Amino acid sequence: MTAPAMVPAITFDEFWNWGAAAEMLPEILTAFVKVTLLVTVVGTVIATIVGLLLAVLTQATPRLVSGPVRWVMDVVRMTPLIVQLMFASFLVPVSWNLMWVGTVVIGLHYATYMAESFIAGIASVDKGQWEASRALSLPQGRTWRAVVLPQALRATLPSLGNWAISMFKDTPYLFAITVLEMVTVAQQAGDRTFRYNEAFTIAGLVFLVASLVTAFAVRRLEKALVY
């Protein structure tokens, strides 16, 4: 009876090579700054502005307007982001920059989620605030700008921060429209060197650090607005 063959142990050098990691790091960080971070920041601005507009339209307009707006929001939320990205890339002219097309699509996609957060924040405003505004004969526009929305924004800030982080983590879907964001660049670096552990570990750590920094900033901003 022969003894079972010994499986050789995997050494640390086989799992991780510092030289390969150092070689990949600048390329991955460049993709992070030029694409992933830029798309996230611009997409968050789009999502916040459009989301706030959608929330106000659903709460302050007649059902003839709010009903279709609600329907569009549901359609956008219930279809995958990657499908929306590909559909948009087929619709736009070939000369358009697909990174910016993807940024707008991601921003509009997350605008529907942020709109729900804004709607919840608007609903959290005490009814006495509305009654006081009517008692003071404030115009509806000023009531929204000066009374309702400032309180709603404070209430929804943590949720908006979470959506921004989710958007950041969804930027790898841009690979579907040939945009070279950070994860795709990491994969290409791994293809060249056959060192995928280093490539995807670096990309994952960048995601982790950026998400933690964003969460910390949102918490600080939340405390500043409350106090």
Rank of each mutant, 00 (worst) to 15 (best):
V39Y: 02
L54G: 00
E23C: 06
V45M: 10
V75I: 12
G67S: 12
F32P: 02
V41S: 03
A47W: 01
F32I: 10
K34P: 08
A88Y: 03
E27G: 14
M86I: 14
P68Q: 06
L81A: 09
R77H: 03
L85N: 00
A60I: 06
V35E: 03
R77D: 01
Q59N: 14
R63S: 13
S89K: 01
G19T: 14
V50P: 00
V72Y: 02
A31G: 10
G43A: 10
V41D: 04
K34M: 14
L64W: 12
M73E: 00
E27T: 15
P80V: 01
P80S: 02
A21F: 09
R77M: 01
T79A: 07
T40M: 04
L29C: 13
I46Q: 00
G51C: 06
M86Y: 13
F90L: 14
A31I: 06
L81Y: 07
P26M: 12
W18F: 15
V92R: 00
W18R: 13
V33R: 11
V45P: 03
G19P: 06
A88E: 03
K34D: 15
L57I: 04
V56M: 11
T36C: 09
V50S: 08
T48N: 09
G19E: 15
L29G: 08
D74W: 05
A55V: 01
F90W: 13
M78P: 00
G51I: 00
S89N: 07
S89H: 05
V83N: 09
T58D: 07
A20I: 12
T40A: 09
L25V: 11
L64T: 13
V50R: 02
R63H: 10
D74S: 06
I49G: 08
M78I: 08
L38Q: 13
Q84F: 02
P68K: 05
I28D: 04
L91Y: 11
L37A: 13
M78S: 14
R77T: 00
L52W: 05
A22L: 15
A21K: 05
L91I: 13
R63V: 11
A22E: 13
L81K: 07
P26F: 12
V39N: 03
P80N: 04
G67F: 11
L53W: 11
L81T: 06
F32R: 02
G43Q: 08
W18S: 14
L38Y: 10
I46F: 06
V42I: 15
V75K: 01
L29I: 15
T79E: 01
V35H: 05
M73C: 08
V35Q: 06
A21D: 04
S66V: 04
